[in-house]
Computed example of a mutant assay.
Amino acid sequence: MTDTTPTEDLSAVGVSIWLDDLSRELLETGRLENLIADRNVVGVTTNPTIFASALAKGERYDDQVKELAAAGTDVTNAIFEITTRDVSDACDIFTPLYASTKGFDGRVSIEVEPGLAHDTAKTIEQAKFLFDKVGKENVLIKIPATVDGLEAITEVIGAGISVNVTLIFSLERYRAVIDAYLGGLEKAKAAGHDLSKIHSVASFFVSRVDSEIDKRLDAVGSDEATALKSKAGIANAQLAYQVWTEAFSTERALGLLESGANTQRPLWASTGVKDPSLPDTLYVTELAAPNTVNTMPGKTLEATFDHGEVHGDAIAGTFDDANQVMDQLAAVGIDYDDVVDLLEKEAVEKFNVSWGELVDTVKTALENAK
């Protein structure tokens, strides 16, 4: 028997547990504080889908919506007023953690409008706007890792703003994200910013890789293909951890770290299991490793707390096996580049749909409040 919980064990490995959820109910009922105290939650991530869901079923937004309607606020500005208030309030709750970890944790993420994913200039503009609007040092601005997002990442980091780079699927793009981060640190240093105050995570998506590749393996139908099901997502993430290890061991990166900069930690996103036949903690326990973040939906967090089996660093020594999995996938006809390109495109489209739902929800609420 052990006196520690699985989430305590996960934290002891060096995994920061962030909740992939935020709502006014979580904030106003004390549930977020309870998750911090009882589930070792040390951060929060949000996205348009999360806010659309919170607003669609949250009566706690009614008073603010009435105020916004009375002031004649348009839909887009109303969305920013509502979402940045939630994020700002969450930042306040996490301020003690932020201070005690020197900015490492106690972080709350808010995403630029997904429709800007391919507009570098407007992404930069909105990232700075959101940072100023939230007004809290421990906010992370989420910028998608599209090709057009890379320059935005560099510019926003260069302005001294901490960034959560999201929607990363491929190892090649992940290398480009790290390069963009290092470029941003160099700009920040030249501008006289305190590098120790700038933090970043790189959100590498996991379960969606398995969902797409498993569908293609089913279509192949051979025994070799079937044997590879549900292995790609973890192998891809393991190799991403190798990329991170190597990238932050270069002379360029070490020079910045010596100047006070922080490493850009890998964050495992999309960790809720899509295939019900798989263990519901698969993308948590199998990716436990030092200096990582795992952002979990509430259901996955509770499953991990209840029955997650954490056995130390699960990624160490896995790189050769992970490469073998990727080679075997290629051998049965899985086109990795096609998979990751499709996943990025779909992810941007899904968040655009969610943003549209958010707009519709707020528009209806504003009209009903008049």
Results as ranks from 00 to 15, higher is better:
residue 8 E to F: 03
residue 10 L to D: 00
residue 21 D to S: 14
residue 23 S to I: 04
residue 23 S to P: 03
residue 33 E to L: 12
residue 34 N to G: 14
residue 36 I to A: 11
residue 38 D to I: 03
residue 39 R to C: 03
residue 40 N to F: 04
residue 44 V to A: 12
residue 45 T to N: 01
residue 48 P to K: 14
residue 49 T to Y: 04
residue 52 A to R: 10
residue 63 D to R: 11
residue 64 Q to D: 06
residue 66 K to I: 01
residue 68 L to D: 02
residue 70 A to M: 07
residue 72 G to D: 06
residue 76 T to M: 04
residue 88 S to N: 11
residue 89 D to L: 08
residue 90 A to P: 04
residue 91 C to H: 01
residue 92 D to A: 13
residue 94 F to Q: 01
residue 95 T to H: 11
residue 105 D to K: 12
residue 110 I to C: 00
residue 112 V to K: 00
residue 119 D to E: 13
residue 119 D to K: 14
residue 123 T to A: 11
residue 128 K to E: 05
residue 137 E to K: 10
residue 138 N to E: 02
residue 139 V to C: 01
residue 151 E to A: 15
residue 153 I to N: 05
residue 154 T to Q: 14
residue 160 G to H: 10
residue 161 I to V: 14
residue 162 S to H: 12
residue 163 V to N: 06
residue 164 N to M: 08
residue 171 L to E: 10
residue 178 I to Q: 10
residue 178 I to K: 11
residue 184 G to D: 04
residue 187 K to H: 06
residue 188 A to L: 05
residue 191 A to E: 07
residue 191 A to H: 07
residue 191 A to N: 12
residue 196 S to T: 13
residue 197 K to Y: 02
residue 198 I to P: 04
residue 198 I to C: 09
residue 202 A to H: 06
residue 215 K to Y: 07
residue 222 S to K: 11
residue 223 D to V: 13
residue 223 D to Q: 13
residue 223 D to Y: 11
residue 232 A to W: 03
residue 236 N to P: 05
residue 238 Q to W: 07
residue 239 L to T: 06
residue 240 A to H: 10
residue 244 W to E: 02
residue 245 T to M: 13
residue 246 E to V: 11
residue 248 F to K: 12
residue 249 S to T: 13
residue 251 E to K: 15
residue 253 A to E: 07
residue 254 L to P: 01
residue 256 L to F: 04
residue 259 S to T: 04
residue 264 Q to I: 01
residue 268 W to A: 04
residue 268 W to G: 02
residue 270 S to T: 05
residue 275 D to S: 04
residue 277 S to Q: 11
residue 278 L to F: 05
residue 279 P to D: 03
residue 280 D to S: 08
residue 284 V to D: 00
residue 286 E to G: 00
residue 290 P to W: 11
residue 291 N to S: 14
residue 291 N to K: 14
residue 291 N to W: 09
residue 294 N to L: 04
residue 296 M to F: 07
residue 302 E to Y: 09
residue 309 E to I: 08
residue 310 V to K: 12
residue 310 V to H: 07
residue 315 I to Y: 12
residue 316 A to M: 06
residue 323 N to F: 04
residue 325 V to W: 07
residue 326 M to Y: 13
residue 327 D to H: 14
residue 327 D to W: 04
residue 331 A to F: 07
residue 339 V to P: 03
residue 340 V to R: 11
residue 340 V to D: 05
residue 340 V to P: 03
residue 341 D to Y: 09
residue 342 L to R: 14
residue 344 E to V: 10
residue 345 K to T: 12
residue 345 K to S: 13
residue 347 A to K: 10
residue 349 E to Q: 15
residue 352 N to W: 05
residue 356 G to I: 08
residue 360 D to L: 08
residue 369 A to H: 12
residue 369 A to I: 02
